[in-house]
Design a protein around this nucleic acid. Sequence first.
DNA 1: GCCAACGTTGGC
DNA 2: GCCAACGTTGGC
Length: 161
Amino acid sequence: MTATNKQVRRYWVMKSEPSAFSIDDLKKQRKTSWDGIRNYQVRNLIRDEISVGDIALFYHSSSDSIGVAGEMEVISQAYADLTQFNKKDSHFDPKSSKDDPTWLCLDVKFIEKYNQIILLKDIKSLPVMKDSRLVSRGNRLSVFEISKEQYEAVKALAEVG
DNA sequence: GCCAACGTTGGC
DNA sequence: GCCAACGTTGGC
């Protein structure tokens, strides 16, 4: 066993409607289970691609100020999302079984809330974001990857304020 | 396995 | 609240 198993940190965007769960909610709770994912592409991403230690931008969608509200860190691997088994939960999935759960979630912890939301319209003006899902119309993935350069460009917008 | 209909997402 | 985009479902 050599000490060369350190992974390169990857960067993600995770979307949430702030009326359901916002950066302020995460700040208060310090960490949360990012559950309710009901899209196969996103499930496969969190299962196969996202690692503990990765960074995710917290994106507020469908709200008065659409954009990136802050940052969080992934603190667990993917595991079974319990809401799929709860009949009273809006994410209940009658086709899923406990032996072979269809849906997964993972845990994230609060890192930072930006002083102001980095608005989508400002993100769109960054050349480095041109081909990102973040600015593409009709992007329905609630979790997707961005490059380190893109992450840094967005973060720089938060710092100039 | 194709593809039209349907349902949901999400920016405006 | 509208509607375009697009993932999912279901009939064939």
